[in-house]
Simulated assay, not measured.
Amino acid sequence: EWHRILFYRRLNAQIRDAYPARPAQTPHSRAAPARSRRALRYAIALAAALALAGAAVAWIGVTEPSQQVLNNAAVMALMEAENGQPEALEAGAARAPFDFGAAGLHFLGGGEVRVGPFASAQRYVYENNQGERVVLLASRAWLAGAAPQWSAHRAGPLRLLMWREHGTRWVLAGNAQTRGLMRAADLATLAAQPAREGEGS
């Protein structure tokens, strides 16, 4: 009988060694997995938010044409406007963003033009009393800083006048000898200055 008792004791010890008892869970040990699950959810939500923000910035970058792309589109739009008929422009007319009457330019019409696979711009065509046309292109520029003072760029006989204001990139294109071209750029860029001065006073 004694041998049987010793055998069962050894068997019991072997079973305990093979399957150690799990430690009793304290409130702290039960809270740890809950905290780790919450931290994981927060990390996933943060990663998703960062991914969405990155996708939004990438989309804005793709849909915003660069200055060079807009300049090239302005040159092409000017050549088309010089060879086009006023009736064709007025058929898809848009509202003029600026009144260039003081520069001797009257609005003919405009519409949307594609300037890239995902980018577009608004085109506005003006004409002076001599029948010379200028083209104003506008596109979004949310990622570019403001540059309210216009700057000029020569492209052969053409002159491109560029500025950025309120998230919009503007290019005014015309022949360098076109009457009213530079005065129109002055009118466009000086229009918002009294409002800015009033805000500061």
Results as ranks from 00 to 15, higher is better:
residue 86 P to Q: 01
residue 181 L to P: 04
residue 189 T to M: 07
residue 31 A to P: 15
residue 119 A to S: 15
residue 160 L to S: 06
residue 51 A to N: 06
residue 130 Q to G: 14
residue 16 R to E: 12
residue 8 Y to M: 13
residue 80 E to L: 15
residue 148 P to D: 01
residue 178 T to L: 05
residue 151 S to H: 14
residue 49 A to G: 07
residue 121 A to Q: 02
residue 146 A to V: 09
residue 109 G to K: 01
residue 155 A to S: 14
residue 144 A to E: 07
residue 6 L to T: 14
residue 161 L to C: 04
residue 191 A to D: 06
residue 182 M to F: 04
residue 185 A to M: 03
residue 192 A to I: 10
residue 18 A to Q: 14
residue 1 E to S: 12
residue 82 E to P: 11
residue 29 S to G: 10
residue 107 F to A: 13
residue 68 Q to F: 07
residue 149 Q to V: 13
residue 176 A to S: 14
residue 150 W to D: 03
residue 189 T to Q: 06
residue 135 V to F: 03
residue 201 S to T: 07
residue 172 L to W: 03
residue 109 G to R: 01
residue 55 A to K: 06
residue 1 E to Y: 10
residue 75 V to M: 05
residue 124 Y to H: 14
residue 18 A to V: 09
residue 144 A to P: 11
residue 157 P to H: 09
residue 190 L to M: 13
residue 57 V to H: 11
residue 185 A to W: 09
residue 88 A to D: 04
residue 118 F to C: 08
residue 152 A to S: 05
residue 105 L to N: 11
residue 127 E to F: 08
residue 112 E to K: 08
residue 128 N to R: 07
residue 20 P to L: 03
residue 127 E to A: 15
residue 189 T to S: 07
residue 155 A to C: 12
residue 27 P to Y: 07
residue 174 G to Q: 07
residue 49 A to M: 06
residue 169 R to K: 06
residue 30 R to F: 14
residue 108 L to I: 14
residue 86 P to I: 00
residue 51 A to F: 07
residue 157 P to D: 05
residue 3 H to Q: 08
residue 40 L to F: 05
residue 11 L to T: 12
residue 109 G to Q: 00
residue 100 F to K: 08
residue 138 A to T: 07
residue 150 W to L: 00
residue 116 G to I: 10
residue 161 L to I: 04
residue 191 A to I: 05
residue 67 Q to K: 13
residue 15 I to E: 10
residue 65 P to N: 02
residue 115 V to H: 05
residue 142 W to L: 13
residue 175 N to R: 15
residue 131 G to L: 06
residue 15 I to G: 09
residue 82 E to A: 10
residue 142 W to I: 07
residue 28 H to N: 09
residue 17 D to W: 12
residue 10 R to W: 13
residue 67 Q to S: 14
residue 50 L to M: 09
residue 82 E to Y: 03
residue 68 Q to L: 09
residue 71 N to E: 04
residue 86 P to T: 01
residue 149 Q to D: 07
residue 139 S to N: 03
residue 200 G to T: 08
residue 77 A to P: 00
residue 183 R to G: 04
residue 70 L to V: 03
